[in-house]
Amino acid sequence: MPAIDEKTALAIAKLARLDLREGLAPGTEEAELKKLVEEFGKIVGYMDILGEVDTEGVEPLYSPMVEPRPPREDAPFTAAAKDADARGAKGAPGKPESSGDPDASFDPDDPDSSAKEDRARWILDDAPMTFGRYFTVPKVV
């Protein structure tokens, strides 16, 4: 079992942008941290069960998908394709997903574009914070 020491746990927390000490009452930090490191070690240790399987001579399996998935045609989304998509009438694998004019995509300046057409608008509306057509986050540099 790989040893998860405090240093490793803190490094991983930092990579995940987690502050392990946040919200802890002063004086309890060290004990809490110790507990977290222990729990972390247990989780990783549990995964170690996989290491017991003898994989000698077994090809690495990167994907459980048996059927090959043919790549997509390089055709942009169109209103028609989206409708077809919504109806579940997706083209056969390897066939273009769009039909008709490929440039007839959503026009952001068109006030008549309904929200249903505008996936982008949906996504923006779901964001915690936006400014105009931008997503916003606290300043990063």
Binding site: D74, P76, F77, P102, F106, A120, I123, R133
Partner: peptide, 27 residues
């Protein structure tokens, strides 16, 4: 030199209005 993104069918055009060529995959 493709018309769409690597993993979704959003256009790759340059200079579009911000966040118009986006979908569930690329966001």
């Amino acid at each position: 030199n493709t018309r769409t993104k690597l993993f979704c069918a959003c256009p790759t055009e340059f200079g579009a209005v911000p966040n118009t060529n986006v979908c569930e995959v690329c966001t």
